[in-house]
Structure formats: structure tokens, C-alpha cells
Amino acid sequence: MVTELDLKGDVCPYTFVKTKLKLEELEIGEELAVTFDHAPAVENVPRSLKNEGHKILGIEQMGDHLWKVRIRKA
């Protein structure tokens, strides 16, 4: 099961802060898919998540200025 988090309209660093808060609610090994429309977040958030040990499963461009990052909680 994949948990979805919609962060359209959010900018850095809140994109990471909110992704982190959502991950804290999940169990280890669970998957989270986060949607961003803030371009810098697509680089920043995966980098910060990797620093905390989480795994980035994929980054997909969903449209013009719309991305989905898939994360596995560590």
C-alpha cells in the first residue's frame, strides 16, 4: 500500500518538513508518494531524505511543474 501526500503549493523547507512528518507516521518499509509543484523540492527533498537514511524509489515528472517522488521509509 502506498500513502499519498499532496504538497502542491508548498515550498522549501516545508516540502521536506511535511514529508518528514508524514514518514514519521508510517512503519519502516512502507512507501510514501509525494506530489510537488515547487521545482527546487525535487532535488532538495530526496537529498535530505537520503541523509536521514530513507530510500528514494523514483522521481517522475507528472506534468509541467508537477513531480511525484516515491520514498521507502527506513
Binding site: 516545508y14 518538513v17 518528514k20 535530505s48 541523509n51 536521514e52
Partner: peptide, 14 residues
């Protein structure tokens, strides 16, 4: 979330 963001970002706090 805004007020405490600099705490939440820290791995030791969250």
C-alpha cells in the same frame, strides 16, 4: 509546522 520547522528538520528532534 512553520514555527518548529527548524527543530523538525533536525534528525535528532523531528
Amino acid at each position: 509546522i512553520k514555527r518548529y520547522s527548524r527543530h523538525i528538520i533536525l534528525p535528532e528532534v523531528g
